[in-house]
Computed example of a mutant assay.
Amino acid sequence: MKQQILLIASGICGLAMSSQAALVAHYAFDEASGATTAINQLAGSSGAVGTAVTTGVTGISGNAYSFPDIATGQTGIVDMGNASFFGGAGGLNSSTQLSYSVWMNSTDSDGNRNTILYAGSDTVANSYTDLGLSGETNAGTGTIDGAASARNRPVGATAGAQQTGIFSSPTTIHDGNWHHLVMTIDLSSTTLKLYVDGALANTQNFSSGAVLFPVFNNFEIGRLGRQGTPVDSYGGLVDDVQVYNHALTQDEVSSLFATPGSTVPEPSVLALAGLGLLSLGYRRRA
């Protein structure tokens, strides 16, 4: 009987491990005051902390970083550059799905996109994904100052919808409180989803445009680091940046929101838990 259980466990774990891995980067931002490096908890590419970014402030879980709303130079951002999680097996450049998860706290209401997370190309203009806080006004929905915003802009994206992205309007998040943002993209279903505080805030279908990702070679926190002239800097707190190479489900997003600092378990963990051989729990930072 014991041998049977082990064989079944081995088989399920094998299937799980061969399925798409989930978390590819996790920047907890738990570093102390004066830190110059943002550590990837998965031992991948670290981030260079700009001199105007304040580390060691109180976060939603552990510490957080405070960003100064500076777009020029490198002083106001955390720069991961051509991060290791872009390439190789399971990297974003070979994936058909992705998710970004971040906690933020801001009163920033500039008349632009106050970009928290940027991932894109530093060699092709206007080719990127971005997640943040909008100060723009959308003609279709009226004033949306303070709404969450998300975009996927690959080369060949059609003007209009993909250029504009989606917003959480009328939900606004520039109120000086902690909010959880998740952006998911699934190329097979041609959908981009934006979640705010565990709830689906908006969805975009981009099947009429280029159904692909930008070529990723630059990852930054704190501004839109597009090729040429970086713009749309962010002012406020950021905590617990996570990157996944699959599109998180509603249940997974809800769990991340309910337990700040947690991550979604790897498929192998879920398989063992299903057998009752491992207690299922979301990993939390101390």
Rank of each mutant, 00 (worst) to 15 (best):
R226P: 00
A247R: 06
R153H: 09
E252T: 05
G132I: 08
A48S: 14
A43G: 12
S134H: 08
S95L: 01
A83S: 06
V57I: 15
N114Y: 08
V241I: 10
L42T: 06
S127W: 00
N105D: 08
N138K: 06
G146T: 03
N218W: 03
A71E: 15
G198I: 05
G88S: 13
G76I: 01
D197A: 04
L224C: 14
L248R: 00
L272A: 07
G88T: 13
V196N: 00
L192I: 10
G198H: 07
G91H: 11
R153L: 14
L15N: 04
A9N: 09
Y234A: 03
S46N: 15
T75R: 01
G111P: 06
S95R: 02
S255L: 12
A247N: 11
N105A: 03
G88I: 13
V124N: 04
T184L: 05
G235L: 12
G198A: 07
S10T: 14
A43C: 09
A48R: 00
G176Y: 13
H246V: 15
D197P: 07
F213V: 12
L92A: 07
P265Y: 10
A32K: 07
G88D: 12
Y128R: 06
S233C: 02
G90K: 03
D130Q: 11
A71G: 11
M17K: 03
G44S: 12
Q250I: 10
L117T: 11
A201P: 10
Y244D: 03
P265Q: 04
P68L: 02
A16W: 09
S262R: 03
G14M: 13
N245G: 13
S254Q: 13
G140N: 12
R153S: 03
L98Y: 10
G56K: 00
G156Q: 06
V155R: 09
A199D: 04
T123F: 04
N177T: 11
F206R: 01
T263W: 08
A271E: 02
G228A: 08
P170Y: 08
T107D: 02
I173A: 01
S84W: 13
G274T: 10
S254W: 01
N112W: 08
